[in-house]
Structures are given as structure tokens and as C-alpha cells.
Amino acid sequence: MSVDVRTVPEKLSRDKSAPTRRRGNWPRLTRVGLGVLSVLLGIAVWDLVSRNYTAFFLPSPMLTWQGAVELVRDGTLWDSVTASSTRILTGWALGVVIGVPVGLLMGCVPWLRLMLDPYIQFFRFVPPIAFVTLAIIWLGPGEASKVALIFYTTVFIVALNTLAGVLSVDELRLRAARALGANPVRTLASVVLPSTVPHVVTGARLAMGNSFLTIVSAEIVAAQSGLGSLIWTARNYAKTEWVFVGIIALGLLGYLFDWILRMVTSKTLRRYGVNF
């Protein structure tokens, strides 16, 4: 079956010792402290390096902070964040909702999988950015084109991960379900889908990351609002520090979204083997 770079191998092990080993035996305070220390060090290095260049080439952390305050005061930053977030969440949610059943169907209906395979092999190599122009021609410069691009990014990744999950369902469980009286439809709903949950969650997380890539490109090309647009228009005012503010906001926003996703899924879907 097609192995996509956007599909990561799923770790399904329920080995409780794994997270401990990965995180070491360090107390929480130390772990957080080291993270904070690292960030402060990074800012210090940035500050030192920026002294050698003009503010246009590399603005200092202080100047960037002032830029951020400026953008928060006039509401631009908040508007940009909400505009980008709304587009991402709408397109991403639609993509997950459509991608999961598509992946399930492809996994369960061999002829459908074979028919869709050429398209998947083809579109794997066409990044969403390549569709920006078409999206604007077909859907106009409004919200629809941006949401459609995020949807395209997401549906692909989620469907492929779901498909990989369906194909890796333990044959033993399928046999057990059949011998216990489950017909194919009920097997799909009560055995295949639950077995696939960790793959779906992984797909949704990867798709969230890719949605950020897509939204910036789309907003740079055609948008009056959003973080991509903020970064692009900063050029017109020769405000390089605004570019930095936009980049940092993107990074923080992505981190926040991923954290929320991880928290919610590992709380509600733990029994399906989702464990971060």
C-alpha cells in the first residue's frame, strides 16, 4: 500500500515504562526549568547577534517586543490570530470529519482503494500551495478558498492515516468479532473503528501541523487578514520586527493547538490506546 511521508508509523505499544524512559527520571520542575532556561539562552544569543545588524535586517528582541505591544494595542495581532485560527479550525475539522470515513471505506472496500490509489499517488506530490491560485479562481479571494486549501491538506493526511490503521487491524480481532456474531457493518463500527483511533489521532495532529504551513502561504498570496497577511504586509512598512512577531505568534499558536489536541485526546480516548 502507498506509504506517504505524511504518514508516521504508529506506536501502539501499551508499555507503561516507555514514557518514563523517554522523559528520564527528572522531576517536573527540572524539566520545565531546563526548557525555560533554553528559551532564555536563545533570546540572549538573538540579542547579541542583533547588535551587529540594522533593525531592518535583524530586529532585536526588545524591538520585537515593542512591535508586538504595538500590534496588540491596535488589535491587529488579535484579529490576525483569530482570522488564521478560524480558517485552520474550520478546514481542519471538515477534513477530519470527511477524512476518517474516506479512510475507513478505502480500508474496507478493496476495489475502491484500487480505484483511488492512482489519485493518491498523484496528489501526494502536489502540495496545497500549488493550488492557491486555482482556489482563488474557483472560490474567490474570500474565506472559502483558504478553508478549502486547509481541508485539502487535512483530508489527505487523515484519510491515509486512517487507511493505514484499518489495514493494520489485528486479524485475530476480526476473527473474534465474526465468531461472536458481528456482521461486517457492526465489525466496522465496533472493532475496526476503535482499533484505528490512534492512527486517526496521529493523522489529525500531523494535519494540524500541515494546516499551519498551508494557511501562511494562502494568506500571503491573497488575504487582508491573518498571520500570513501580517507577515507579508510588514514588508510594505519596512517593519521587520512585525515579521518576527507573526512568526512567533504562529509557533506559539501551533504549540497551543497541538497541546490542546493532545490533552483532549489522551483524556477522552485513552482506552483506545491514545497515549502521549
Partner: peptide, 15 residues
Amino acid sequence: RGVVFQSAEALFPWL
């Protein structure tokens, strides 16, 4: 005809 498998993986771990 009920089947008991050698591997306990046959149980549904989410139930």
C-alpha cells in the same frame, strides 16, 4: 461455534 484464541490480543482492549 465459539473460539478462544491463544493470544489475549483477541480481547478488545478498549472495552
